[in-house]
Amino acid sequence: MNSGYGGSGSVDEETSNSRKGRKPTYRHSIQQIQHLEAFFKECPKPDENQRLQLGRELALDPNQIKSWFQNKRTQMKAHHERADNSTLRSENERMLCENLAMKEVLDNIICPTCAGPRLGDEARQRNLLKLRMENALLKEEVIDSSFLL
């Protein structure tokens, strides 16, 4: 039994060597982890009394119990975020494909007047300006021809 933590597992020598001046880290046994996992499903945030009881049952320090639960909650949060991101990524891909399909449909619309391809906004504006200029010229011709009569 090391450092008052009870038989919680062996010291991870590589980790403790790389962390000079820190407390050694311990690995929990499979039975301890199974017990902690089962308790986590029932209560992800145990209070101090529950941590003390778990510590007695598992021969672990209450601070180890507290750290394990904090780490487990962080791990679960990260897992849920990855799952949400994956769902959002596929939804985004689906919408992108749908958007591209709609753009293609819009680009292939046929003009109802001339049965030709639909004009883009810039071409439409140029044609409108051209028609207005032709209209103005025709009005001038009409006015000039009415003076000759």
Rank of each mutant, 00 (worst) to 15 (best):
M1N: 15
M1V: 06
M1F: 11
S3R: 02
S3Q: 04
S3T: 03
G4Y: 02
G4R: 01
G6S: 02
G9T: 03
S10F: 12
V11G: 00
D12Q: 04
D12K: 07
E14K: 14
T15D: 14
S16T: 15
S16P: 04
R19W: 03
R22P: 02
T25E: 08
T25P: 05
H28L: 06
H28R: 03
H28P: 02
S29N: 00
S29T: 02
H35G: 04
L36Y: 01
E37L: 12
K41V: 04
E42G: 14
E42D: 11
C43K: 11
K45G: 00
K45H: 03
P46E: 02
P46S: 04
D47F: 11
E48N: 10
Q50W: 01
R51V: 02
L52F: 12
L52C: 09
Q53T: 08
R56S: 07
A59Q: 03
L60V: 02
P62G: 01
P62E: 01
K66R: 11
W68M: 00
F69T: 00
Q70M: 12
Q70R: 14
Q75I: 00
M76V: 15
H79R: 15
H79S: 13
R82W: 06
A83Y: 06
D84I: 10
D84W: 08
D84N: 11
N85V: 05
N85H: 07
T87Q: 15
L88N: 10
L88A: 06
L88M: 08
R89C: 06
R89F: 08
R89N: 07
E91I: 09
N92I: 06
E93Y: 06
R94D: 06
R94Q: 14
R94N: 13
M95N: 13
M95H: 12
L96Y: 15
C97N: 15
C97K: 14
N99R: 14
M102C: 08
M102D: 07
E104C: 12
V105R: 11
N108P: 05
I110M: 12
C111P: 09
P112N: 07
P112G: 09
T113D: 10
T113A: 10
C114E: 04
G116C: 03
R118L: 10
L119R: 05
L119Y: 08
L119G: 03
G120D: 14
D121F: 09
A123Q: 14
A123I: 07
Q125S: 13
N127E: 12
L129I: 13
L131D: 09
L131M: 10
R132S: 14
M133Y: 13
E134Q: 12
N135W: 07
N135C: 10
L137V: 10
L138V: 09
K139Y: 05
E140Q: 15
E140L: 14
V142Y: 10
I143W: 11
L148A: 13
